[in-house]
Nucleic acid binder design. Structure first.
Lengths: 132, 132
DNA sequence: ATGCTTATTGATAATGATTATCAAGAAGGG
DNA sequence: CCCTTCTTGATAATCATTATCAATAAGCAT
């Protein structure tokens, strides 16, 4: 039977309080300040298991590191190409996108994701400071 | 000055004749049959340089391996979750997506990509054979 | 409470993709 | 044909992630 360990509670609470689509390493660093004994492997493991059982989700975005978020109604993301941070996009999810145009396709479409890429507020500021 | 080496010609010709959004390793394997002396590092290097100079593009899709394609008018992709192959989506590119809804956002949107995910024709067949 | 079973953890090695390093080799101008 | 310097090939290094496995600890039964 699945056991309710302290490590699981801590990792889950960390993601719940972070709200910024963190990577596993970011969750680890966040936790590590207060709980230095929790290992990185455990954080990866718990985040992954929670994605498998549907409690969390991997953010479907083109970054070499995986980002995680709480299970949410479907929505789109904005991805900063400077700092690689992820934000929720302010436009509604549109399921009709996958209904139209695929009638004659032999690819079985299960879902879609949209990634808006560009530069986040913080990184725009940094660019101004550096006169770029 | 940039030099026109045989390795560059071979890698470029490989990608031009492949048409299936291959990964660097797939390009390497394709080349390796005929040119076993070309090293993997060279294939990664040339593909990357060609993306920097605009000759090729990285496919903007959520896979741990990078996929490459020839420079193309913008379009969307379908990504098979079984075999990780990439296909062009049969719906038109719609730039109006990034015009609407971001007026009050402080994120500077430079572009967008849509990934349709599901199961490709080949993998659907395999599933049928295995009675899944 | 105590003990037992076994899921889970922590530490670390292994993996896989990609990049960095650097001596040897080759493009292309002179 | 030579010389400079860009490229290459081989390999080590890096980075994210997963696998391994002995030690630990949940949570049930006693």
């Amino acid at each position: 039977m699945e056991r309710n360990t302290l490590q699981k509670q801590i990792v889950k609470n960390a993601l719940k309080s972070m709200h910024n689509h963190p990577t596993a390493t970011e969750v680890y660093n966040y936790i590590h300040k207060d709980y230095p004994s929790i290992s990185k492997a455990t954080v990866f493991r718990i985040l992954n298991n929670c994605c498998t059982n549907g409690e969390f989700m991997k953010v479907d975005v083109n970054d070499k590191e995986a980002h995680y978020e709480l299970k949410n109604p479907p929505h789109y993301h904005m991805h900063c190409r400077i700092c690689n941070k992820i934000f929720d996009a302010p436009i509604p999810f549109d399921d009709s996108l996958i209904k139209k145009g695929f009638e004659n396709s032999d690819f079985f479409v299960e879902g879609h994701s949209i990634e808006f890429y560009g530069v986040c507020k913080e990184c725009q500021k940094k660019k101004e400071i550096n006169n770029e």
